[in-house]
Design a protein around this nucleic acid. Structure first.
Length: 112
DNA sequence: ACATTGACTAATT
DNA sequence: TAATTAGCCAATG
């Protein structure tokens, strides 16, 4: 299988592993996926922007609203939709509910 | 091969 | 605390 497909799958899988009410940042995902690919002998991809690119393209079937930037804000393009989903999953929010409370909601694979 | 762009981040103002 | 700037990685034209 090709490396670019691996990257795509790795990002999507990780995104789908995020439990409801929790979130991950683009940067964290990029680091985890990068390490995973290196362990598999693939090329380093590192790059929060690449993660965003993949999620943007992923479309349906992926809980993209559980992935936010370092400030805790969901994508500006679908901000209202994301906030709706986040509220529905009882994700801790701050600043008038515009951003996610990262100190409380931030999650990563080992924190299961 | 060069320039532009994007669901980013960290540092600076 | 919010807005701006510079750095970053890969895809695209």
């Amino acid at each position: 299988m090709r490396v670019d497909d691996d990257y795509l799958e790795a990002v999507l899988d990780l995104a789908q592993r995020i439990p409801p009410g929790r979130v991950m940042t683009y940067g964290t995902i990029a680091e985890f996926v990068g390490d995973q690919l290196v362990a598999d002998g693939g090329r380093r991809r590192g790059g929060p922007r690449q993660v965003g690119q993949v999620l943007a393209r992923a479309g349906g079937g992926v809980p993209w609203w559980r992935v936010v930037n370092a400030a805790g804000s969901p994508p500006a393009s679908n901000l209202s939709r994301a906030l709706t989903e986040l509220q529905r999953e009882q994700t801790p929010l701050v600043a008038a509910g515009l951003r996610v409370d990262l100190t409380a909601a931030l999650w990563w694979p080992d924190s299961d």
